[in-house]
């Protein structure tokens, strides 16, 4: 289990992480979701003792990272697949990692096998494709057979096959009862990977819920209604739903009532409807809506 309490990190004037608290439970994949620059990587670095928080702390199974005796046996992390020396072979890279935590060379060969790099173990890591580098990083995270795993954007730049491989891998790790925290800036990706979501924006917590609940809330249906008696209908609906007007054609957009109830209400009051259509928002649209205020860099709108 990972517990973050009031984590705060400033880099000069920028507040990268702002009073962030959450818990990550064992036995499921927890997605750590936020737009670019939200503070995901910074938070992970603080959990792993690489960066010192200005305030707050992060505990892993009740201990700070620096208090762990053989850290790789408790926590495995893949923060950046490029953190290898390009002129060192994959096997040598894993060997020094293993040695530092009293892990045998046999285990090195085991994890190489698990991620499918046995055939290229003697090749220099600098010549690896992104997918191979990512696998090497995962092998490193698995070396100590840890109960807690952290992955920072592990599918970034991978092809669909690689993405599916990693996704299944995480599910297996969680099914073993491990704690798995995976960051991403894509809700559509997390929707398929994570059971639980921690959503942050501008370093602040936006939500921590199950993925299912989050998606349901985020994409809750709207209903488009057009009627010659729009004004009257609007008054009738105002009590039980939120009603806005479509900016383009002036149709009513009703939020909080299903199409059947709206139709019944209209009929009971003798109102003619010209359109009554349910609208399902896309995941990404909902995510953007939710994190809109907190996205750090808006693309210049034209």
């Amino acid at each position: 289990m990972i517990e973050a309490a009031g984590l705060t990190k400033h880099y000069g004037p920028t507040v990268a992480v702002d009073d962030l608290s959450f818990t990550v439970e064992a036995g499921r994949v927890t997605g750590f979701l936020g737009p670019n620059g939200a503070g995901k990587s910074t938070t992970m670095r603080m959990i792993l003792g690489l960066d010192t928080p200005n305030k707050g702390q992060a505990l892993i199974d009740g201990k700070r990272y620096s208090e762990l005796k053989r850290p790789l046996g408790t926590v495995g992390a893949l923060l950046d697949a490029k953190w290898v020396h390009p002129n060192r072979s994959a096997r040598s890279h894993l060997r020094w990692l293993a040695k530092s935590n009293h892990i045998s060379d046999k285990r090195v060969d085991e994890v190489l096998e698990m991620v499918g790099l046995t055939a290229v173990a003697k090749r220099n890591a600098g010549g690896f494709s992104l997918g191979m580098a990512q696998r090497l990083g995962i092998a490193g995270a698995l070396l100590g057979d840890p109960k807690v795993l952290l992955f920072d954007e592990p599918v970034n730049g991978l092809d669909p096959e690689g993405i599916v491989w990693i996704r299944q891998f995480m599910h297996r790790l969680a099914a073993d009862g491990r704690t798995v925290l995976v960051s991403s800036h894509l809700l559509s990706e997390m929707a398929q990977t994570a059971h639980e979501l921690i959503v942050i924006g501008k370093g602040k917590l936006i939500a921590q819920t199950s993925t299912e609940q989050f998606i349901k809330d985020a994409t809750e249906d709207n209903v488009r209604v057009r009627s010659p008696h729009a004004v009257k209908l609007r008054e009738l609906l105002a009590g039980s739903a939120t009603v806005t007007s479509d900016e383009v054609d002036g149709a009513l957009v009703v939020h909080g009532l299903d199409p059947a109830s709206i139709g019944d209400l209209a009929a009971a009051n003798g109102i003619v409807l010209h359109e009554l259509s349910p609208q399902r928002g896309s995941l990404e649209a909902a995510f953007m809506q939710l994190t809109k205020e907190s996205v750090e860099y808006h693309a210049a709108e034209s």
Binding site: L50, P71, W83, V84, H85, L97
Partner: peptide, 18 residues
């Protein structure tokens, strides 16, 4: 300096927090 350049210093500090 190559450890800083390639980030392996972070991998080192993860493996050896001291």
């Amino acid at each position: 300096t190559t450890e800083y350049r390639f980030g392996t210093i972070r991998a080192t500090f993860l493996a050896v927090p001291g």
